[in-house]
Design a protein around this nucleic acid. Structure first.
Lengths: 325, 325
DNA sequence: TTGTACGCGTTATCAT
DNA sequence: ATGATAACGCGTACAA
């Protein structure tokens, strides 16, 4: 494998001139420029990108931390990130964590080791303190609302999104309201739990723990929820479901077992997944793709200019009323 | 940022010894070992991974080329790859191509530049010749059946899978059979087209071009297909649909507009997506997750040992009969 | 416009 | 066991 020293020798110039030609810098005579390109051709020269990274101290690589990929939510976010990364000539290094703290810390260590220029965190388990500890190692963008820390964040106000949906249900006369959620930890889930408590209290209704369904991520979970629901002595009359996949599972299984929706059970999903549209599921549209896009742009702008208009960016959520609530 | 030279000075040893300690090599006195670790602690030493990559000539990074991520098929494959990569301490560098040849070539160039140790190609547009041209730059694993070239491949025999489904339909008495496909190019699509031609000819039926629906990737496409179907003068009585998402779109829209499935239209999907199970869609189960897993393992085994049991691996597909055909 | 020489941070080799 | 020194390959002040 030829390197620039070999090229220099072959072309009869210095390595500096080779570098200048290869990277399109001015102040090189047409003659030598040509000689270098010819030498490159002849010796089948290929740049070693690792050496470039080491010499420049930058990689044009952005890390993406996320628990899993095979989920409509995360794959939408990463698609948004990817689109922008492509546009600006950046590459994406994947850190799948399965929400294991150890893996999350590994990703942060990689940032510290300068494997990438920055990191986008789609979701995580580890405390915010951990991110704070790595802030000087490179820009980190979180895809969630963060309090008490001055992180870069792009987020959806899940509290307001939940309030919006809950108010709608209450206005429709519902009082026995439950919800399905992916996992109980994490700021998004906390925000939703808070909204649930607050709004129900406003109308003097006691929140019930058994009407909160945890571990709802995929279509199949909707079926499970429906089976639990049908077996209950006291059933909620309405469910907020933080994933349209799960909502679809509920609606489809309800049809199968003859539960009338929304009469017996009203359902509001989240995401505005194509599946929700197809099934006529009332949903809170969440801009996942845009979230990824903006997260990358924020990071990119910081990397290129060293400053940003604002470190936090909020994205809107809006209720789309269809047939299920 | 302290480097190993700083550590060497601080600990009063040579850089070689520092490196030995840091990487756990033997032949270092307990005393110096301790001194190095203390120096590392004191100077907050962090390894620069770029320098390691350059020095070792390897990165423990594997590239993944795929057209888009936000699709059940590809996100399943990548999940399989990712799981195995995690297990063996490798990282994944994403190359989203949108099936643009230029981007695909860019990924191959990156392999040549030694940015990664190997490349897994989930799907592509560019000719096989292109891959052949990069074979010496690092192992490339293709996720499709390849003829005439001696590539590493892990694949599903889509010809047989299609034959299987077609024979089933024919046995059920269908003669007017069409199919939906993601795109017309690509070896998988070619294999399917071949199977379609061959099997129909076997039973003396002419394949019809207007019963082949192209561009079928997402749920919404199923709706479109159903609308086209209903508008046809001569309609197929059965459809093979190479994505359960699309099949689901067909089935759901059929329900809505009152088309009886399978009586008026039989549908066989592909993938065995959870959605297909939930909707009772007859489908050909395809092991996408396993495909990714095996692709990585093949690559990994080659990288670590320089040889493999066999360069090609075929994965089975099997028909799951449910209610739609 | 061009070249020299050094820096980037680590690993590997060889001599002791 | 340990150290000096040479790779690894490129970018870039600085001098000319």
């Amino acid at each position: 494998m030829a390197n620039i020293r070999d090229l220099a020798k072959e072309a009869g110039v210095s390595v500096a001139t080779v570098s200048r030609v290869l990277n399109g810098y001015p102040y090189v005579s047409e003659e030598k420029r040509k000689a270098v390109w010819e030498a490159a051709q002849k010796l089948q020269y290929v740049k070693n990108i690792q050496a470039v990274h080491l010499a420049k101290g930058r990689t044009a690589i952005v890390g993406v931390m996320l628990p899993y990929i095979h989920h409509p939510y995360f794959s939408a976010v990463i698609e948004g990130i990817s689109k922008e990364a492509l546009r600006y000539g950046y590459q994406l290094l994947l850190f799948q964590t399965n929400y294991e703290v150890e893996r999350e810390l590994e990703a942060l260590e990689r940032l510290r080791m300068k494997q990438m220029d920055g990191l986008i965190v789609c979701s995580h388990e580890v405390d915010w303190e951990a991110f704070a500890a790595y802030q000087e190692d490179g820009p980190i963008v979180l895809c969630e609302q963060v309090e008490r820390y001055d992180f870069f964040t792009v987020y959806i106000d899940h509290y307001q999104a939940f309030v919006q949906a809950l108010r709608y249900l209450i206005k429709k006369g519902h009082r026995r309201i439950g919800y399905c959620i992916g996992r109980m930890t994490g700021p998004n889930s906390q925000a939703r739990a808070g909204a649930y408590q607050d709004v129900l209290r406003e109308v003097g209704v006691l929140p019930r723990r058994q009407w909160v369904f945890d571990g709802c991520l995929f279509l199949e979970d909707g079926k499970r929820v429906m089976e639990q629901w049908i077996a209950m002595e006291e059933r909620p009359s309405a469910l907020l479901v933080t994933s349209d996949q799960v909502a679809a599972g509920i609606v489809l299984h309800a049809r199968r077992i003859g539960v009338r929706i929304p009469d017996e059970l009203a359902v509001i999903g989240f995401d505005n997944d194509p599946l929700a549209e197809m099934l006529g599921i009332t949903t809170v549209a969440l801009p996942h793709f845009t979230l990824g896009e903006r997260a990358f742009r924020l990071l990119h702008h910081w990397l290129e200019t060293g400053r940003v208009a604002r470190k936090q960016e909020e994205l809107p959520a809006r209720l789309l009323v269809r047939d299920t609530a």
